[in-house]
Design a protein around this nucleic acid. Structure first.
Lengths: 177, 177
DNA sequence: TCTTACTTTCAGATACTTCTGAAAGTTTGT
DNA sequence: ACAAACTTTCAGAAGTATCTGAAAGTAAGA
C-alpha cells in the first residue's frame, strides 16, 4: 500500500489527482480529516460509484481507514450507498449537486457546532440573570448577547437551508445588488 | 502550574469558569485550539484588560503557551493590546461587540478556508476546459460549479461583513419573515 | 552602562488524532 | 451446514498538534 501514486490515464485525471490531494489538505483547515476529504473528492469526481477496494487502491490507504471514513461520509449524508442488482458488494457515490452538498454540510455543522454552543450560553445566561453587581450584570449581558446572536444565526441558516437552489439565487441577487 | 482550579470568588465567577471551560472545548470543533479559545473566553468576560501573568495563572498554562496564543488572537483581530500609561507591561482586552466579533471571524475564515479552496478549483477548471471525452467534460463541469459556488459564497460573505449591525438586522428581518 | 521588568523563542515532552492490518463478524449462495 | 465474498472492529504504530520551561532577547530607567 505504499507504492508510488497510482496511474491516472487520460489527461483530466492529472487534474483530478491534484484536486483530490489539495482537497484533502484543505480538509484539515475545515476540521475534517484528510482521508475523509480525499475520499469525498474522489467520489465527487468519479464517473461511476466505487467500492471499498477501488478507493483503498486509488488513495493507497488501508481497509480500516477506508471503511471508517466512508461510514463517516455516509453519516454526514454526503455519500450514499448504492447496491447494484445481482452484485453483492457495496458501492458508494457522492452527492454531486453543489447546493445540496452545501445544505447538507450546513445542517451538520449547525448540529455539531452551534447547538452545543447555544446550550452553554443559555445555561450561563440563566444562572446569572439575578446578579446584582456591575461585573455580574455585565457578564450576564454578554452571555445574552452571544446567545441571541447564535439563535439568530441558526434561524438564518435554517431559512437558507430550506430554500431551493433557484429561490436562493433570487434571494442572493437581491442581497448583492 | 498544575494545582487545582484557581479560586472564583463572587457567584457569577462560577458561571464564568464554566463558560471558559466549555468555550475551550467548543473551540476544537471550530478548528481553533483549546487554549486560544479559553483565553478568548477569559478576556471576553474580563471587566478589565489583563496581562500575561494573570492569564497564565487563571488558566494554569505556561508562559510560552499564553504568549503564543495571545499573539494569535491579536493576529486574528479578536484581542487588542492595551498600554496603560506609566505602566510597562502589556495588557490585553477582547472585542466584546458580538457583531464585530462575528465579522472579524468571518473575514479570517474566508481568508484561510475559502481563498485557498478557490485557487485549487480555478486551476482544475482551467486545466480541463478543453477536455473532449464525457468524463473529462463532466469533471470540468463539476469544478466549475464548485468554483462558482465558492465565488458566490465569498460575495455574500463580503456583503454581510460590510453591513453595520443595524442594517444587517433589517436585512435579516426581511429574510426571515 | 547595568539592572530590572518584561516578552519572545524553541527544543524536547506530552497528549491527541489518525492509520494500519489482521482477526472477527456477517451475509449470501450452494 | 459450509464456504466464499465481503464488511467491521480494534489494539497498537505512526503521525500531528500543542504545551512546557528555561534560555535568550528587548527596552526602560537609574
Amino acid at each position: 500500500m505504499n507504492d508510488e501514486t497510482p496511474p491516472p490515464s487520460p489527461s483530466w485525471e492529472l487534474s483530478r489527482e491534484e484536486f483530490i490531494a489539495q482537497w484533502g489538505a484543505l480538509g484539515s483547515n475545515w476540521g475534517i480529516n484528510r482521508t475523509m476529504a480525499q475520499i469525498h473528492a474522489l467520489l465527487m469526481t468519479a464517473p461511476e460509484p466505487m467500492y471499498t477496494d477501488e478507493i483503498m487502491e486509488r488513495l493507497s490507504i488501508s481497509r480500516g481507514n477506508a471503511n471508517t471514513n466512508i461510514r463517516e461520509l455516509v453519516g454526514w449524508g454526503l455519500v450514499r450507498l448504492v447496491v447494484k442488482k445481482g452484485e453483492r458488494r457495496e458501492y458508494f457515490e457522492a452527492e454531486k449537486d453543489v447546493w445540496k452538498m452545501f445544505i447538507t454540510i450546513a445542517k451538520e455543522r449547525k448540529r455539531r457546532e452551534l447547538d452545543p454552543a447555544l446550550a452553554v450560553l443559555r445555561k450561563c445566561a440563566e444562572e446569572t440573570k439575578s446578579e446584582t453587581g456591575i461585573a455580574g450584570r455585565d457578564f450576564h449581558q454578554q452571555m445574552k448577547e452571544l446567545q441571541e446572536f447564535v439563535e439568530f444565526a441558526m434561524k438564518v441558516s435554517d431559512t437558507v437551508a430550506s430554500m431551493k437552489h433557484a429561490s436562493a439565487l433570487q434571494w442572493a441577487m437581491r442581497l448583492l445588488s
